[in-house]
Write a protein that binds this DNA or RNA. Structure first.
Lengths: 118, 118
DNA sequence: CATCTAAATAGATAGACATCGAAGCAGTCA
DNA sequence: TGACTGCTTCGATGTCTATCTATTTAGATG
């Protein structure tokens, strides 16, 4: 897992243009979220009791093969949105709230909704 | 442009799992942001003087052909992240801050960063 | 009108990706 | 140890997409 100081700190998109490197790093994360199945996986994990879900919970939630779910989990983990931990027979996935918070801050319209335009 | 009540209202990802339809709609938007060029376009437009930029501003910022930039603008517009307006010979693009704000709210960790895990 | 410039569309192509079944790996348990 | 279960990895495949060049559309202007 590569480090993910994509944002120096909470700078909103609108303050200044992203340089190529920042854009490349952030785009990887958004691309990971840019699949309906992965978005649902994230939301299922995030809202699951205890803040974690095992792969079996997830495969049960989709009409997709288990390897496909595993693939999506790998993608989400590679960009730093999820972590995993094996306990006994099961592997549990958790979200990384810091990264979600970073993305949230990035997208925040400075000064609040509707202040920039309109 | 289809309507975009993707979020009933600012509900964070973690409150409850997204249903298929919500996930599909949101994933389209994240996918649009999931390309480095498009992310930079959004940031350039958002941070540009007056809150708008013409296509010529954007083509000048990339080592890409004009049709390629046009393609990316179309994608961003189709998911509702940008609007465009023609004035004289030029077409000006603006961001839609409401949608960015919705996404920001969606990704917000309920209760603040780091409260859920760790 | 003829011409020029800005932007969009069309068509082609190479690379990426979501998905599957099959095979491999890792723990558990009798 | 052997068999079983949960998950990951591998390899193949059909679809999607980022990019290009060429063409077209739309305003402006002489």
């Amino acid at each position: 897992m590569e480090s993910l100081e994509l944002l120096d700190c909470c700078s909103p998109l609108a303050r200044e243009p992203l340089d190529e490197e920042q854009a490349a790093g952030l785009a990887r994360v958004f691309k990971a979220l840019g699949d309906p199945v992965r978005l649902r996986i994230v939301s299922i994990v995030a809202s699951h009791a205890g803040g974690e879900a095992c792969v079996c919970d997830l495969t049960a939630a989709f009409a997709l093969s288990q390897p496909t779910i595993s693939h999506h989990l790998k993608v989400l983990k590679e960009v730093g949105l999820l972590t995993s931990e094996r306990r006994a027979s099961w592997v549990y996935y958790r979200i990384v709230p810091e990264l979600l918070a970073d993305l949230s801050a990035l997208l925040q319209t400075p000064g609040g909704v509707g202040e920039i335009s309109r």
